[in-house]
Each structure stands twice: as C-alpha cells, then as structure tokens.
C-alpha cells in the first residue's frame, strides 16, 4: 500500500489502532497485576494479549482470567 492510499484510509486506521491498543494494554495490565489464571501462565498470556490482535485480549478476559 503506498502513502497516498494510506492517507485516504487514515480516518479508519487511527481509531482502529487506538481501539486495538486500548484492548491490548488493558488486558496486559490485568495480566501483570492478577497472576491467577484458569490455565496457562503469565508469560503465555502476556504474549497472547500483546501479539494476537483482537482475539488475544478477548480470549483472556472471557476464558483465561482467574477468579479474584
């Protein structure tokens, strides 16, 4: 994709990136602060929420998160 095309889609990309980052960062903070998981360990979940966009954080909050 060249730059002029990128510029055309900037109104889409900026909010999209912000939303994805917000999801990843909240999940990462939660992973580091609450070291109890239903399965897996800290390193695994930290990598998952950081590198698997969109699906990683959702998986963490729905099935990975342990009870307080």
């Amino acid at each position: 994709m060249d730059w002029s095309m990128m510029k055309e889609y900037l109104p889409f990309l900026v909010p999209l990136v912000i939303a994805q980052l917000a999801l990843a960062v909240t999940a990462l903070i939660h992973v580091l602060r609450h070291p109890h998981y239903r399965f897996g360990n800290k390193v695994m979940w930290a990598l998952m929420v950081m590198f698997i966009q969109f699906v990683g954080p959702i998986l963490y909050f729905t099935i990975g998160r342990g009870e307080e």
Binding site: Y9, P15, A19, P57, I58
Partner: peptide, 20 residues
C-alpha cells in the same frame, strides 16, 4: 470486570472495520 469495555470495544472495532 471489564465486560462493558470488551463489549463496547468489540462492537466499535466491528463498526469501523465493516465499511473498510
């Protein structure tokens, strides 16, 4: 419990990606 955040963000991301 982040349920509100996830629901809203998931639907926001869908909302943006659909036309794109």
């Amino acid at each position: 419990t982040y349920k509100l955040l996830i629901m809203v963000l998931v639907f926001v991301i869908f909302g943006i990606t659909n036309p794109l």
